[in-house]
Simulated scan of single mutants.
Amino acid sequence: MSRGAAARSPCLACELADGRAELPGGTVLRTALWTVEHCVGPLGVGTLVVKPLRHVTGVHELTGAEAAELGPLLSRVSGAVREVVEDCEQVYVCLWSHAGRVPGHLHFVVQPARTADLDRHDAYGPALQTAQFAAGEAPEPGAVAEVCERLRGLPV
């Protein structure tokens, strides 16, 4: 069982973090409190998830140490995405923590807003994410592995 896990429904975020589920690209970065992984959904190559190793469902549940590490970590990860992902106009950072309308494992999505994606979907911001989910196209595993390897090479 993952850190902080109690008797509850299976948690994909915990399963990805502790190796019970396949994680395309592998772990990009892990600290004592947080992990950074490539998103397993259709949000495009270079979209990362920053999540606490401990299962929590809201920012209000973070410990002082987790909260203190969060801001600098999101800043570094966003900068790395901007540096590694070609055609990146902006980096979106948003909090997600629902699964089936039930609060789930807290995670921050760090998504490159690439010109090609903005043009293809004729959308930006939350509308881009909605369009990408509607299209349902997961990134090519080889491209995910390549971008993760490039990100691991940076001082994140």
Rank of each mutant, 00 (worst) to 15 (best):
V147G: 03
P103R: 11
A68N: 05
E140Y: 12
R54L: 06
V156M: 14
L53I: 13
A145N: 13
A99M: 09
P52L: 10
A131T: 06
G104D: 11
T63Y: 11
A5K: 08
L16A: 06
C148A: 13
S9Y: 05
G26H: 06
Q129N: 12
L154I: 03
V85R: 01
Q129T: 15
L74S: 08
V59D: 00
L128N: 01
V36Q: 01
E146A: 15
G46Q: 05
P126Y: 10
R8S: 14
T27K: 09
G71A: 15
C148P: 10
L128C: 01
A13N: 03
P141H: 07
H60F: 12
P24E: 04
G153A: 13
V81M: 01
A135I: 09
G142A: 08
P155K: 02
A138F: 15
D87G: 12
H60D: 08
T31H: 07
H38V: 06
G41C: 02
P126L: 13
V56G: 08
P10R: 07
G46M: 05
L16E: 04
T35N: 00
D122R: 15
H55M: 04
P24L: 11
Y92M: 05
W96N: 10
E86R: 15
G153Y: 07
T115W: 10
A116M: 04
L12C: 01
V84Q: 00
S2P: 13
L23P: 06
R76F: 04
V28G: 05
P42I: 09
Q90E: 12
G4E: 02
Y92R: 04
A123C: 03
A21L: 13
G125S: 09
A127W: 02
A65I: 11
V147F: 12
V93C: 09
P52R: 05
G4C: 03
P52E: 06
V40Q: 08
A32M: 02
C88F: 11
T57D: 02
R82S: 10
T63M: 14
T35E: 13
Q132K: 15
A123M: 05
S9T: 02
Y92C: 03
P126T: 11
L62C: 07
M1T: 12
G64I: 04
V91L: 00
A68G: 09
E86L: 14
R152G: 07
P155I: 01
V102H: 13
G153I: 08
H121P: 05
G153W: 06
P72V: 08
E69F: 09
L33V: 00
A123Y: 11
H107C: 03
C11H: 01
A21F: 04
F108K: 00
V56L: 05
A143Y: 11
A127E: 06
G41W: 14
A6C: 09
A5L: 03
V56Q: 03
V110A: 07
A123K: 07
G64P: 06
W96V: 11
L95V: 04
P126S: 08
D122S: 14
